[in-house]
Simulated scan of single mutants.
Amino acid sequence: MTTLTVNGVQHTIDADPSSPLLYVLRNQLQLNGAKFGCGLGQCGACTVIVGDNPVFSCLLPVSAVGGRPVRTIEGLGTVEKPGPLQQAFINQQAAQCGYCIAGMVMRAQALLDKVATPSDEQIREHLQPNLCRCGTHMRILAAMREVAESNAAVSSGGKS
């Protein structure tokens, strides 16, 4: 038995320690936001945040999670009340087919958790490991800028 804390909730799971975290999230915890894309850590559709870092959950054995918390797209908001980054992706129409979007949002959230107002260069570099075959990269950048601008306004006390 393994204990995982996912989106702030502790779960005791019965899984082979070598099982990829992605399989545990999807098959045992019914958290289907992270997608199986390539299974090789080359597309990013399975990206979740473990501890403070974005990881390819298709490659990470559940035993390697240890005591670090896991965050998935489901932990950022709901359909009724999307989180700020999710809302920015909606506002900027950053999703086309939607397959990569949960992974993109999670990788983007990991950056925003560390750097509240990242530069375009930081955003591009950080998102590099995740692929979007539909080509909505400019809209994804716009969504990230929207959140960064909001963060900048909050940190400056609303002064522009």
Results as ranks from 00 to 15, higher is better:
Tyr99Arg: 06
Gln87Trp: 04
Met138Ile: 15
Lys35Pro: 05
Glu149Trp: 05
Ser156Gln: 14
Pro118Asp: 15
Pro20Ala: 13
Val24Arg: 04
Glu146Trp: 03
Val50Arg: 15
Pro69Tyr: 10
Gln92Met: 14
Pro69His: 12
Lys81Met: 03
Val24Leu: 05
Met104Lys: 08
Ala143Gln: 07
Val154Ala: 14
Ala34Val: 00
Gly44Pro: 12
Asn130Lys: 09
Thr72Ile: 10
Gly83Lys: 02
Leu131Gln: 05
Pro129Lys: 10
Cys97Met: 09
Lys159His: 15
Gln96His: 14
Gly8Cys: 05
Arg26Pro: 00
Asp120Glu: 14
Leu85Gly: 01
Glu146Gly: 11
Ala102Tyr: 09
Thr78Phe: 02
Asn7Met: 08
Gln93Leu: 09
Leu29Ala: 11
Val48Gln: 04
Asn27Thr: 07
Val55Tyr: 12
Leu76Ala: 02
Lys81Trp: 02
Asn91Trp: 01
Leu141Gly: 12
Glu146Val: 13
Met144Thr: 02
Gln92Cys: 14
Asn27Arg: 11
Met104Trp: 13
Asp120Lys: 13
Gly135Trp: 01
Val79Ile: 15
Val147Gly: 05
Val50Met: 14
Gly103Pro: 06
Glu121Cys: 12
Arg145Met: 09
Ser63Cys: 08
Gln28Ala: 07
Leu4Gln: 05
Arg139Leu: 02
Cys38Ala: 01
Thr47Cys: 07
Gly39Cys: 09
Asn91Cys: 01
Ala95Trp: 06
Asn130Glu: 01
Val24Asn: 02
Val55Ser: 10
Val9Pro: 10
Cys134Lys: 10
Leu131Lys: 03
Pro61Thr: 00
Gln42Thr: 03
Ala88Lys: 00
